[in-house]
Nucleic acid binder design. Structure first.
Lengths: 169, 169
DNA sequence: TATTGTTATACTCTATAACTATA
DNA sequence: TATAGTTATAGAGTATAACAATA
């Protein structure tokens, strides 16, 4: 299957189309030819919009991601969540502390293995997450508006080629 | 102009093609549908390869970027460099301290404005940067190998649509 | 008054190593 | 011995606010 890429429709508004800014006269050398450079800029822009969308709920992209994974996998163990979120299990601890202190997530002692905790969304957590997901869908729509549905799929496909499925080599 | 995207040629090696890993059974909920999620994974993969390529020279992507910009703009002022690199000028100070302590960059008092410093690569800085650029080109070739030249250009074009030219709104 | 570089400080994200309580 | 969660600690990376020197 072949996917086509639609070019932007000639400047959304007006001056917005210019690709420079404060440092217009400063050359970037080979930087602008590096995929990593463009990925980083895109990441900054996308995350900034995400924070703008979710700031009111005091949820960072990372915390939001944890809530989503816990919701999708009730009873998940901390180590499993850490793996899924690509965090060290020690990194997960303060994040869960934060979510638990806000009564969004609950650590329940696992019945079968007393070393483990099962993770669950609280009622409050489920409510907040529902709100957050609405905000995130709006955010996604906003940034995807620059692309259109076809190009969005293409972009994701190309990005996934850079990150080999998420395996740890 | 229409750009076509070539799909990957049926698994480079073998098991590498599988898209899961340790947390195979853990669902990600809506996460996998978010552009930001894929951008983040790509960013992590690309930066990890960059660090692997440049680690021997003890250059992070950030420091490498600063050297490249200084090389392309000899005599640049700190504030200008900060703008070009999208850093606060206070953030730039310790970075330049690091580069200067390693004798890679020099702050020269500007003749016309005694508040300002002009930034220059030292001879050592130029030598190291030349090495680094070779390593970065190899790195770029490596990650672009997953794409091919056409898809590489497409990816960059799509990413740039997410980051509005780099302007600060 | 405004700008340049600097300092002091703090916050986020992340990791490694070692500890504890289980298994 | 090995694993799950935790703690202590540290290191990037980044920012804001305030300051001295200079414009």
């Amino acid at each position: 299957m072949i996917t086509t890429v639609r070019r932007r429709a000639r400047a959304t508004a007006g001056p917005t189309a210019r690709g420079d800014g404060a440092g217009a006269t400063v050359g970037l050398g080979m930087l602008a030819e590096l995929i990593g450079y463009h990925v980083r800029l895109a990441q900054m822009a996308v995350f900034a919009d995400f924070e703008r969308a979710l700031g009111a709920l005091s949820l960072s992209p990372g915390l939001f991601g944890l809530l989503v994974i816990v919701e999708a996998n009730p009873g998940l163990r901390q180590t499993q969540l850490a793996d899924a979120a690509r965090l060290d299990r020690s990194t997960l601890v303060p994040a869960l502390d934060k979510l638990e202190s806000r009564d969004l997530v609950e650590r329940r002692a696992a019945p079968d293995d007393r070393r483990s905790n099962g993770l669950f969304l609280t009622a409050q957590g489920a409510t907040l997450l529902a709100q957050a997901k609405r905000a995130v869908r709006a955010h996604e729509k906003r940034i995807a508006a620059e692309l259109g549905e076809g190009d969005r799929a293409t972009l994701i496909e190309l990005l996934d080629r850079l990150a080999p499925g998420g395996r740890r080599p």
